[in-house]
Write a protein that binds this DNA or RNA. Structure first.
Lengths: 220, 220
DNA sequence: ATTATTTTTTAGACTAGTCTAAAATTTATT
DNA sequence: AATAAATTTTAGACTAGTCTAAAAAATAAT
């Protein structure tokens, strides 16, 4: 097993790698972890010995498959706990992060799976961040809710939040389907409803409620 | 704030005090904590400096009001988490203890209060152990389920687990009420139903289902 | 291309919590 | 009451994770 500190370093490295293509630097990790470079170097040696990272002195660090899997299971736990706090315990999204940072280190496979089931297997958290599956695999790309895009932005639909037949049948009546190109023509300030054009076709309106249940990634 | 280790020592001392009237010995704590006497002595000095225990060298230790309150809030969290795991996440009672030992150290007042609310403010866990309130006060005595008593034992009813009108109305038809003296005349091995006499009156039968929802303390 | 600057690593030290072995104290036994 | 046995405390050492200060390496600037 890995210590709480090791888990936090792995998570920090994972998140830094996501931003950059190359390796992650010691200083970047130190900043993210609120520690000093010297402490990071010590930990990198340790994680390297455990084969959780590939570490090249003075160059940088990448996660191994093993290390990435651990990072992803922690992120899975973090996002499931956030969902749980918001959906079941009346927490606001702005107040769950720090608490989830504690809960993500609770060590029980069964607990995670039961929480997942209790939440009815969510695929994304309401930030649009995908929740890794129990094997540490991201089933979907990191997407944002359509409701978070700005006027004149163009994006591609990647998924839905609400999987109910009602919602999917509604979508079927429009051109909105996986892979559709969506342009935000206008946003109504009053009710946050959107005027959108799908696949460069005729523009139409969708409510904020609908927009909040559509996932998309920015195009270009 | 107190470290996880400090919290565990306080909890251990609380539980040991509950058994004994006097002070708790170093060796007893060492045994409960799976550490050595030397380690315990170190920790006792630390807890004493923090005014969480009254520590007399070579004699023993007692919790201060402050220390007891901390112990009770940890026990509160432990029992609420156990209830949550069993009631909401389909865990068995035999598999929740170790997990609750992790969860009890999660530091968030709001989380505890929301879990309490989510469970509809349980007063006891199904072992009959009382759940301290948010001020660290035990509202009720430690009781056991009537179903756990043995043939010919005499006890006093202290509470119910099921607070539903249906159940309470059923009880009202019998002499079973808070403070009633109950003697277990016989136990049916097949369905675990009980033949009991209340307040030395006429004997009657109750099912195991009913017995599991009645709390009682041993008499004499 | 040589020097200056920044980054990273090493070396040595500190804290929390643990240990073993030895010393101090209390309790039990003769 | 004196000694033996058990318990508790002290002393010194170890690990994980952190730090500061100094050395080593890489990057940038002249």
């Amino acid at each position: 097993m890995n210590s709480l500190t090791e888990e936090n370093y792995l998570k920090a490295i994972y998140k830094l790698v996501a931003g950059e293509k190359g390796a992650v630097t010691t200083n970047a990790i130190a900043q993210k972890m609120n520690t000093k470079a010297a402490s990071v170097t010590d930990m990198l040696k340790k994680l390297s010995d455990k084969k959780l990272i590939n570490y090249e002195k003075y160059y940088g660090v990448k996660l191994t498959i093993k290390g990435e899997k651990i990072a992803l299971t922690i992120i899975r736990k973090h996002r499931l706990w956030e969902m749980f706090l918001v959906e079941k315990l009346e927490f606001g999204w702005d107040e769950v992060h720090d608490l989830a940072e504690q809960l993500e280190h609770i060590n029980s496979e069964k607990l995670v799976e039961q929480i997942d089931k209790f939440l009815d297997y969510p695929k994304v958290d309401p930030h649009g961040d995908p929740i890794p599956d129990s094997n540490g695999k991201l089933q979907i790309q990191k997407s944002a809710l359509l409701s978070t895009f700005k006027k004149n932005e163009v994006c591609m639909m990647t998924g839905v939040v609400d999987h109910s037949p009602t919602f999917l049948q509604y979508l079927a009546k429009t051109e909105l389907t996986l892979g559709s190109t969506i342009k935000i023509n206008d946003i109504n300030d009053f009710d946050r409803s959107l005027q959108i054009a799908v696949n460069k076709g005729k523009a139409f309106f969708i409510s904020n409620e609908v927009a909040k249940n559509i996932l998309a990634t920015a195009k270009q």
